[in-house]
Each structure stands twice: as C-alpha cells, then as structure tokens.
Design a protein around this nucleic acid. Sequence first.
DNA 1: GTTGTCATATTGTCGGACAATGATAGTCTC
DNA 2: GAGACTATCATTGTCCGACAATATGACAAC
Lengths: 250, 250
Amino acid sequence: MLPKATRTHGYQQVASILEAEIVSGRLKIGELLPIEAELAEALGVNRSTLREGLRALESDGLVRRVAAKRLQVVAPDPARVALTNARALGLRGASFRDLWEVQMQLEHFAAHQAAERASDEQIAAIRASVEELIPSLDDDQAVVRHDIAFHSLVSHAAGNAALELATAPIGLLLFSATQHLYQAVPAARHRLLAAHRAISDAIANRDAGLASDWMRRHIADFRRGYEIAGFDIHANIELSYSSPFGPSSG
Amino acid sequence: MLPKATRTHGYQQVASILEAEIVSGRLKIGELLPIEAELAEALGVNRSTLREGLRALESDGLVRRVAAKRLQVVAPDPARVALTNARALGLRGASFRDLWEVQMQLEHFAAHQAAERASDEQIAAIRASVEELIPSLDDDQAVVRHDIAFHSLVSHAAGNAALELATAPIGLLLFSATQHLYQAVPAARHRLLAAHRAISDAIANRDAGLASDWMRRHIADFRRGYEIAGFDIHANIELSYSSPFGPSSG
DNA sequence: GTTGTCATATTGTCGGACAATGATAGTCTC
DNA sequence: GAGACTATCATTGTCCGACAATATGACAAC
C-alpha cells in the first residue's frame, strides 16, 4: 500500500503553485507575471505545459490578459464567479424552490444593510436603475435585465462581499427563469416596478426596516407570480445562456 | 464607438463551445468526450489549442479525467466550487463580519430544513460526526475539521443545492479562521460540542424549531468567541490553504 | 510636439515526436 | 470453456521547434 502517488500532472502543478503564490499573497493583486518563456523555465516545464496551467488559472479568474499581452494577477471578478456558480447550480439540478428559499433568507437582509450602509452614489445608481425601467416596461427582456441589475445593485450596496457572492448566482438563475412569466401574468411587471420603487425609496430614506419589509413581500410576491403563471416550482432551473466571455471590465 | 472587436482566441472558443454544449444539455452529464485528436479535428484546431481549452473546462469542473483516460462530462463538484468561492471571497477581502452575517441568515434555516427533510442516513451521518469529535476534542485541527464537516452535513441534509452552495464556502473560510481560537478560549470547544450535539438531537427528533434556535445561538456564540479571542472582526479573512486537488471523488 | 515607420518582443497557434500507461485482444494452462 | 498471463495498441502528457500576428518602444520626418 504505497502512498497512492496521486498522479499529479505538470500543468496541474503549475496551476497549483501559481495559485498558492497568489492566495498566499506572495504574488500580489495587480502584479504582472513574467513572460511565458521565463515562467516555464522557472518552473522547469515546457511552455506548452505552462500554458495549460495558465488556462486553468485564467478560467478560475485569478489572472487575466492585460494590455501589454502580459498576464496580470487579479481578484476574481464577482460577475464571472456568479456565472460559474449559476451554471453549477443549474447543472446540479437546483429547483426554483431551492433558489427561492435561499433568496428569501438573504434578499431582505441585503435591503436592510443597503439602507444602512449604501453610499450616495450607490443610492443614486439604484434609483437610476428603477427610472430606466419605466420606459421599457413593455419589453420582457428589459424587465428581466433590470430585475437582475436592481437586485445586484442592492446586494452590492449592502457592502458585504459574501452576501453579494451568495445572492448573485441565485438572482441570475431565478430572474432569467422569468423571461416568459410576464406574458402569462400581465400584472407582474407593474407589481415589480412598484416594489422596486418602494425598496429604492426606503433605502434612499435610510429606512432599513421598511426596505427589508418591502423586499420580503417582493420576494414572496415573486414566487406567487411564478406559481400563478403555471410554472413548476420543483422543476430544475436552467441557465438561459448569455455571452460567457465579457471583456471582464471590472 | 465601433463594436470593439472582442479578440476571442481559439482556446477560448473551444471552451466556450464545449461549455455551451454541456449547459444546453446536448452533451449530457456522464457522457464521454471523443479523444483529443478527434475533438481537435472536429473543432478545426490543433491538439495543443484544444488542450488549452480543455484545461479551462476542467478547471471549471465541467469535465474530468476518468478511468479510461477519457474526458467525462460532469456536474461541478460542490466541494470544488466551494473552494473556488472561498478563495474568491478571501481575495476580494471579505471580513469575518461579512461572512458571519450571511452565515447568520442561512445556517439556522439549514438546520430547520434539515430537521424536516433529512433522510435517516443523513441523520446518522450527522450524529456520527458529533460522536467522532469527542475523542479528539483536544486536537484543535480536528475540531476545525469537524466543525466544517458538521455544518456541511447539516446544509446537505437540508436538501437544497443552492443553500449548500451558499453556505459551504463561508463555512470553509470562517471555521478555518478559528484554528487558533481554541487556545485563546478554552471553553469554546466544549460549547461547540454541546451546541452540535443539541442541533444533532433536534434534527434527529425532527424538531425544526429547536434545531433552528440552537443553530442561531450557536452561530451567535461563535462570533462572541471570535471577539473574546481578540480577533479583529473587520480584518480580511484568508483561506488557510489545504490541498487544492483532491481526487474529487464525488 | 505629433505622426509615421521600423525593429523587437511576446503571444497564439501549429505540426511533429515520444515515453508512460491503461485498455484490449490473443494465448496459454488447467 | 474459464481464468490467468502476455503482447499489442491507443491515448494522454510532455517536449521541441517553428511561425504569423500584433503590441511595444525607439527613432525619423514633418
């Protein structure tokens, strides 16, 4: 019974080593990596092998190509992470009920914290988001986009990275699953607008309790709409696919 | 303002295409991918380029090497995803307070749901986890490992994939941050054992309210211990590093 | 000082090669 | 005929060398 020699390949070691360097802080965020030829020599592997390892890091969002073709160490972009998580949830067969339950636990808290902590710019962004919805209230796609953006802004305004990371993929999945809800339930879009406006106002007025209450009702109402539209609460939710590779401009 | 010509490279297209195939379900979970030579030819790229794309997919947890050296489509392993998220949270500077706040919202709910939905096997596993802790209560590392495992088991028993995904990275970070807490606060380990036992019993008795209450107190107590130990609630939490590449036996 | 041109550096991609190793078929023994 | 053993094959992981495309920086022209 030898130690089972977990066959760990070169490219895995490359990724593992660089990842450890980044997580441990020896490679700092923003730092530029050496050119591939140097890195390969330093790690004692061929450039091809090195590149395979780099692809893994890039996919994890730990490095990215930057202007001068060089690789830069970066902190994972929340939007990317959210997309990855949403995909994972979709593939693991999360149901509307699963997602909604978690959302019910988190969103009202996000609204509460946003009311207490949001900066003036963040409040302005939230208000602007609501205002922008009004002219395109008839466009289902636009409503969904706004819905995702609004809740994302509120979570962000709560000033809690963990909260933001937890809510983002759920919002992404849940709201994109409502693309065809607004035809079945015409009143939904107006109720959504009213709720978002109320939440927005409460946050702007620093009324955490009111913001929290409105959000709670809003999420509860969201589920009712989903059920009224005749969708199955227990069916798996699939991520309706939107362009996976943004320029990642964060 | 021209369309910004997003230079998308070959290996990115490879990853993107295969990812879309998997997410859309055209490539089903468990299916084996063709050999690299065939895939490369089918996609019109060199094997080197293909492999770089595959590394990205592998890193995303969408495929893995399986027995016959072949690549198999898999649903992302929750443990892997949790580790990725924990790393992202650490690098984005999440504080103990951030993590704790979210945990406070989710863990009591997890206990509640576990009491209602856990299978007999899951209840047995939770009980066993608590029992196993007793003989090694003096070993700080073992306490931390148990702590992570226990909360993970409870979340899993709640039968909600989204809840599990949201809580796992937070537990990973929070509990691994307590490695040096038990020396500063000797009573902590006994309070932890008592709480876990009470939660375990409540779940076994299907008493959702009691399980939820105990968990709430347990998490609140956890924070008190952290503060009493003199740790800074607002300091960034770093992921103490543990072997990133498990055999991923899930 | 701005613009255009050139040399240089670096990446992305290709093709080929080979050792290691797991899978497979075929052979031998009973 | 069943099972153990062996030789063959297929496939991956890794290396090497090469080249076009392109961004950078230096330099010349205006």
